[in-house]
Design a binder for these strands. Structure first.
Lengths: 195, 195, 195, 195
DNA sequence: AATGAATGAGGGTTCATTCAT
DNA sequence: TATGAATGAACCCTCATTCAT
């Protein structure tokens, strides 16, 4: 990648982070291109140099986040840990990411209301990938006998539901720290599968 | 209540049900008053005979749903069941309501992005009431010794998160029936608290 | 006129008076049929039993007022007074009417912005009649030698302008009484014509 | 001021002049943003680049005009003329402005029906300033003995009333020229105060 | 004689998007 | 690269008017 390309890439990410904040705070339809541009000390028009349109901007925000999530969980999957440890790690990792990058993370909600066509298919695929990783861990646990014989899909939905919901209530100033939440949630959720 | 009042009330509810469908499908900002009216074979303007504005319409949808939820859970709370049975019932009831009235239920998400001022305060209060009921059940279980000594608030957040998330994936045509989901979720979630 | 007709006529005038108040306060376009109906403890729809439409309602308000004005000035014209006394009386009478019926009187402003076609022509004719009466008095004064030789039209415009403007600032609670205003204005305005 | 700012200022004034014509012809409520835009070969939406909303546009029209009026009268006040000459000049100046800029001038009517809150207070203040200048001249004349001992406020109301009313009847094609009107009105009105 | 309900045309305003500079 | 200016489609909402009852 040329230096120029890299610089653009850098700028793009800077925009993405800032855009994500506004977008997650006001919602996709609630946030205007102007809102986003203002926060970046740019003008509305300039944004179109970097992004094709609003949907594209949103998509890139989304992608940036899901890539990070997938990276992390792949790492966990490929480690030498036991299934229990893997599931615990995945839960903790998800929470850490969600709470640290609350703003960006919360973009990932209700994609059907924001995306259409090509973009939507892509987004759903990426999500599905992430979910598959969880299924993989759970299946592994069942096979090794570490886990009880649960309904894999339903359990995964339960777990991810409880984790994703954290965005709805977590606040850095709020009562619980990230670590407290991580510990409690991984403890509680593992109780479901442990024999 | 006069006959006229009753008729108007009936019409209002009819509108609400239909509106909820459109609103939950397209989101608050995504759905237009025209969309909603068209579905009812009405005109945009007519809606304003029954509702002050879009926010008001949305608010009423919301209220209708949360009233039902609160009614149900109050019934459970006041019953003679054990804490375990109460929690299980509350979970099942929540799932039944959420899946049966998926469209209306899903309106209850992210109120800060849709409401402001008076309305928002009201909504948040109603939500908080519902959550308090769950806390009450959990506390009861701890006191009677039925439940393990958990962090009440975090557990409640975990449970409600996993339940609310059902809206994101449940589909009547999908793989699992309401009952299967209810059974699995109440089973799994109770494992967390049972000693 | 039958008794029934008379009753309708009565009701009409009642509506007119009340309507005029709202109309003059909020302006023709600013006042809604609902505003007017509410004040009369009626419903919007009922107004259409008495009046063809908003323009018609406004027109009738207008007519009611100008008829009164013309009546009074005709009386003055046909009296046995001197021109000076007639002009003075006309001024005083105009002020009394304008201040007593401030609300209705102020409807008579800028008819071109509110009326069209048939209505407009009618209104302008009625206005013109009233103005002609003033001209007549002034001409009479010049002929009898009571008045200086002024430009009749310009003087009439000056006088009526200053009188009509009273609506813009007169308030029953304000500093000056109707009589003080009447006296001062007739005194000042007569100074212009007196030799 | 930068070149850009100047250009925008220029455009704003261009819009204001054109808007004033439409607004004064059709009235505030009668004129639509579309009407105004069309006349400028612009689109409705573009107007919002320059003005916050309709009320703002109207306010700026108003302000532009009253600033001019105040400028002129201040000049007169600060001159070395006698009170009689000052009053005469003020009358002539007012007439010249009103007839030359008939369209914009006529916007200044009935502000309570068009403005609210902040805007209204501002407008009323500006008006009041202008009136105070007239009072000052009249008081000066009384003090120097040039004028008869009149009721200052009532006389000012009489004078400004007759002047403002000119807008209701003046037409460039009509019978009287600006100068004829100016001469007649200042002559007539001064007769009131001259000893 | 009155009204509840519905309508639809139109108004103000917002905003994603474009494009010349 | 960046932006100022313009656009136009779409949205929410208002309101005069109608009409069955």
């Amino acid at each position: 990648m040329s230096l120029r390309k890299k610089k653009i890439e850098k700028k793009k990410e800077e925009i993405l982070r800032s855009a994500a904040e506004v977008l997650s705070e006001k919602g996709y339809h609630g946030a205007t291109m102007e809102d986003i541009a203002t926060k970046l000390l740019m003008t509305k028009g300039s944004m179109y140099y970097y992004f094709k349109n609003k949907e594209d901007l949103y998509y890139q925000c989304h992608k940036m986040m899901i890539d990070k999530s997938n990276e992390k969980i792949e790492e966990i999957i490929n480690s030498n840990k036991s299934a229990i440890e893997k599931l615990s790690s995945a839960i903790v990792s998800h929470i850490q990411l969600a709470t640290t990058e609350k703003t960006m993370f919360s973009l990932m909600d209700k994609p059907e209301q924001k995306f259409s066509g090509e973009y939507l298919a892509d987004i759903l695929q990426q999500r599905s990938d992430y979910e598959k990783y969880f299924d993989k861990i759970i299946n592994e646990g069942i096979e090794t006998g570490e886990f009880d014989n649960v309904d894999v899909k339903l359990l995964r939905l339960l777990i991810l539901g409880s984790l994703n919901w954290i965005l709805e209530w977590y606040s850095p100033e709020g009562g619980k720290t990230q670590d407290e939440i991580s510990e409690a949630f991984s403890d509680y959720l593992l109780r479901i599968v442990k024999k």
